[in-house]
Amino acid sequence: MPYPLLRRALFTLEPERAHDVALAGLDRAGPTLLGRLYGDRVPRAPVHALGLDFPNPVGLAAGLDKNADHVDALGALGFGFIEVGTVTPRPQDGNPHPRLFRLPRHEALINRLGFNNRGVDHLVQRLEGRRYRGIVGVNIGKNRDTPLEHALDDYRHGLERVHAVADYITVNVSSPNTPGLRSLQSGDALTELLAGLDKTRRSLDAAAGRRVPLLVKIAPDLDNEGIDALATAATTHDIDGLIATNTTASRDRVAGAPHAEEEGGLSGAPLLQPSTAVLARLAARVDARTALVGVGGVVDAAGATAKFLAGARLIQIYTGLIYRGPSLIRDAVRAAQRTG
C-alpha cells in the first residue's frame, strides 16, 4: 500500500493508538520483507563518527521505540543507526492521556508523554536478544519522582546498565515533559552531571575494553549564552557528541492551529529553523572531536541538507517519518551524498 494511503488510515486512529498499530505492523511484516521494500533501496553512504562506522548518516531519533521492542523491524527500513529510549531506571507510566497531538497542516506533533517506558532492565533484555546488528544508541533519563539533586544517581544507573548493550549513550536533559529537567542543561547542575557521568563512563570503558561514546541531547530553546556554555562544558568533560535538538516549547510557528495550545514539546517541520540555528552555533563553538547530530524538522531532503550544511555529521528523523513514511530515509541519505 502506498504510504499516503496508509497514513490516511492511521490518522483515523488516536495518535498513540496509531503509533502502536504501526509498530505492530512493522513487526508482523518482519525484517526480510521490510528490507526488500525499503532498506535495500537506501544507498550506502558510509560515515565515520563517534569512533563508529555508520552505513549511512541517517538515524531514527529516540522516542519512537522507547523500550527497544521493535529494533529488528525498524533497523530493516534502512536507517544508518537506531536510538532507543528515553529509558529510566524504574518503569513509569508517563503523563495522563491524551498526551500526543497531530498538527497535520504543519506536519508537526505535540507530545507530553513524559518518559513513559518499561524501565531499563526491560530495555537491556530486549537489546540482548536483538537480531539487528547495526548501530544502536540508548537514550537515558531520570524518573519523574527522582529529586533533581539526585538526578545523577538515575543517569549513572542508566549508564551502568546499558553500557554493555549500547554502541553509544545519550543523556537526555532537554525533554520539556519532566518537571525541572531542563535545568540540568546549565550551571553547576550540568557540571556535576557531566563530570559524574564522564568518571563513570571511563571506569566502565576500562573494564569493558572499549569506549562507548557519550552524547548529550539539548533543547532548541536555549539562548546563545546557554548554547555557548553547554558547548564549553561538553568539551571540558570529554563528551563525544551533542544532539541538537529536542522538541520546543515555542508555538510561534503553529499559532492558531488546532491543538497548538496543548502543553508539551512541538516536533516536526516547524522545528527545522530553530533547531538548525542551534546546530550551526554549536558547530562554530566545538572542535572536531565533538560530533554533532542534527535532529528536528527534517521532513524532506531539503531539511536533511540544511542539517548537514549547518555542521551535522549525523542526522535523525522521527516526526518526518510519520508524515512522509520510510522513503524519507532514502531521500535524506541521498541529500547526505549530495552535500558530502
Rank of each mutant, 00 (worst) to 15 (best):
G80H: 00
P46N: 01
R112H: 15
L37K: 01
P147F: 09
P104R: 11
T88C: 12
G75V: 08
F81V: 05
P104M: 12
L74N: 01
I82Y: 01
G141T: 10
P43S: 11
R90H: 13
G85C: 10
G137L: 11
R112S: 15
F115Q: 10
H106N: 15
P96D: 13
D53S: 14
F54M: 15
L100I: 00
Y38V: 05
R144D: 08
Q125R: 15
Y155L: 10
G78C: 08
V71T: 02
G59L: 05
D121M: 10
P43G: 12
V87H: 08
G134A: 12
G141S: 13
A76E: 07
P43L: 08
R99I: 04
F115W: 00
G78M: 05
G35P: 00
R41Y: 03
G119E: 10
V162Q: 03
L159H: 08
N111T: 10
L127K: 11
A68Y: 15
V71Q: 02
G63P: 05
R36N: 02
L64D: 08
D72E: 10
N116I: 09
E107W: 07
D93W: 01
E160P: 03
G94E: 09
L64Q: 09
E107R: 15
V124L: 09
H106V: 07
D53V: 03
V84I: 04
H150M: 07
L52W: 10
L148I: 15
G119N: 07
P55G: 08
P89K: 06
V42L: 09
L109R: 13
N117K: 05
P98G: 04
R126T: 06
D154W: 06
G94L: 14
R105N: 04
P96C: 10
V162S: 13
F81E: 09
I110F: 01
G39N: 14
L109T: 15
F101K: 08
D40T: 12
A73T: 09
A45W: 00
R133G: 13
G134L: 07
G75N: 00
L109H: 05
V124N: 15
A151S: 06
D121H: 13
A61N: 05
R105C: 00
G137Y: 07
R130E: 05
L74D: 06
T86S: 11
R156I: 12
L52P: 11
D154S: 10
D145E: 14
T88G: 11
G35L: 00
T86H: 04
N117F: 08
A108Y: 06
E107V: 01
F115G: 07
L50T: 06
D153P: 04
G137C: 12
L74A: 01
N56V: 01
G59N: 07
L100Q: 01
H157N: 09
G63S: 04
V136F: 03
L109Q: 14
Q92Y: 06
G80D: 00
L127H: 02
